[in-house]
Design a protein around this nucleic acid. Structure first.
Lengths: 210, 210, 210, 210
DNA sequence: GATGAATGAGTGTTCATTCAT
DNA sequence: GATGAATGAACACTCATTCAT
């Protein structure tokens, strides 16, 4: 692939990620191209349709999440890794993608690569959760799914809120929630999580069609 | 106002609320009119633009929230009112509106009625929070703002997730989070909330423009 | 249906027919709307997509063809009806539609109404052909299918030819061809027509997909 | 010219001719380049625009037509040459080009080479027609223009018809039409052909601009 | 007051053509 | 000379909003 093409591709993905985070996954592709400082045709050459672009952004996001998680599961890493991971993810607001892009995992023809990447992220977070539990930092009844969903929800773009407000409140809420997930004498059993669905897309999470 | 006009108005607001919850605040107004079984022209006669419709929906939602909250602050009501309130709100998914409609609170020309209604809701929730604190059910450093924001985020529509999954996970997450908000020996101080802004829109929450 | 709506619909169909004849079925729908002196949105309100518009144009064309044919099969009508019919059709250049719109007859989900209209046209032309044969005006081995296909081909828009040339040549060619279809001693058997296909779209003519 | 350059040029012209016949002259040039297994840039290096490519294809087609015609006018050739010529041309479906490419003959700046080639084809066909007439195989009032136009029309690609249907019907129609062009007692005079225009493009056929 | 038709700006997508590699 | 990436104009289609009935 030519150098300039690769650069444009990078810029497009970066621009898309920014705009997805700022304005949601429904931004006009025009805007993405403009932000990347590239013609709309170039966007379409690299990504045949919005789906393809979103898929690539998801892939990148999953890779980032995975890297952040594995940083904390490295052998000999300090306790509190789950917390540190979540704080960093929240700062990057990568969670938006975690949530907005779930639909992609279950398109009519689920993208195998994407599903695989998601599985990998899930595994890393499973490891973080297990470690936190082993360290006595996490309630016994909290699963990786709970953690991921909380993350997705808590870092969702709140339509009309100012960036400063979000930036100030996110660590605060995260602190409250994470501390609340620690074991405690008063803890009572949680309502059950839904069972894993038979199928589709190979994930254990039942997202709906596109 | 003619009887049929009033009925149409009601149906429009109801339809809008349903669709806002189901599909987000960006639904086509056509769809709202159709759901209300009313012509699009009728929608526009009652609400000069999407903003006006959304504002009315917000007003209704705030009224509902307020009623639910005041149910729990009635003199002689049982402890645990905050929890019960939050669970009910989550069930109604009225939180979507709480979040999606925040922008309205800070439009260029903030709607006084709306701001007032929001203030009232805030007051009721303040009361619930105070009561919970007094009962020893809530960490000292949790504010009404924290509660409202958590509520908004946790009940946001998660784009591609199936209704069943959401329905199953919401009470679970809420249980975890609420239990986590209880006082505990291990609790450490939360990061500070942002200070109230001087202005605008008269709310103490700094939402961005439209 | 409102009077102005009906008028607009008429104008759209008329404009589409004109432009289909002049420039082929692939004209920009913008151009159709402009020719009909109507906004593009109006076009789309009446016809959800290009297919629907083309289908309606086809329906009208078939109705016209049928009328022209039945004019000549009325009881007591003079001999030479097939010739007169073909000349009139060629003058109207309705044949374009006969050919350009065949695809519609075999769309994935063939439009029943359209197929029925086509069958009716075919029947009328069958009658014309039978009559012509009975009158001794037509070779024995000529079928209605032959006639329709000839008509479609001979009246096709010849991309770069001027209107005058076409207008002058069409009757001339038609005269030659029609006279050639008369019985003659020198006639030799024609190559066989293809057998009717099992299916689809209920017509006996095997047009390809969309 | 480098050997590979020449080869690429050949492949482009061949690919274009195939696709023109299969899908009409409006195919995407991308598709032509792909079929020729060549970059789109290469196509544009050889042919500055679609016009130039089409012109070259026309040239080749005219050459083919001419060759086919002169095969039948060779001294001592058997009677029935016009018929044989037309059948062969119809089989090759070269007629598409004859019709689709007429516009090229009258572009704002008519391509002299092209016009000349067309004139040559016309001359050859004139000869065939004269011979057929002399042999008593053709009505007196049929001209070379009639023959060429019939050929163009009868071999036009019929948008939605299947290849098999066309393949089966073409010889049949051709048989009918050709036999109909033979002299006969019942023949009546044809409507007059349009007079040759003063100009433009030097052809005697009044095609419109581009 | 209700209706739904008309409008046109906005967005997704394709493709002819240019140009850097 | 070959390549394929970049560009933007053009077209299909949607939807907020206005307005005639």
């Amino acid at each position: 692939m030519r150098a300039d093409a690769r650069r444009n591709r990078q810029r497009l993905v970066a621009a898309a990620m920014e705009l997805f985070v700022e304005q949601g996954v429904d931004v006009a592709l025009d805007a993405v191209a403009r932000r990347a400082d590239v013609g709309i045709g170039t966007l379409y050459r690299h990504f045949p349709d919005r789906h393809a672009l979103a898929g690539t952004v998801a892939l990148e996001s999953f890779a980032t999440l995975r890297r952040l998680a594995s940083d904390e599961t490295a052998p000999g890493s300090a306790p509190g890794g789950l917390q540190r991971f979540l704080v960093r993810v929240a700062q990057l607001r990568v969670g938006v993608l975690l949530s907005s892009l779930y639909p992609l995992l279950t398109a009519r023809t689920p993208d195998g690569e994407l599903v695989a990447a998601f599985e990998e992220v899930t595994e890393e977070i499973d490891a973080l959760v297990a470690r936190a539990r082993a360290d006595g930092d996490l309630r016994e009844d909290v699963t990786a799914d709970d953690v991921m969903l909380l993350l997705a929800l808590l870092t969702q773009p709140l339509q009309g809120a100012s960036d400063e407000y979000i930036a100030a409140m996110t660590p605060r809420l995260l602190h409250l929630v994470l501390e609340g997930l620690q074991p405690s004498e008063v803890a009572t059993p949680s309502p059950p999580a839904p069972p894993a669905p038979a199928e589709p897309g190979a994930t254990s999470r039942p997202w709906t069609e596109d």
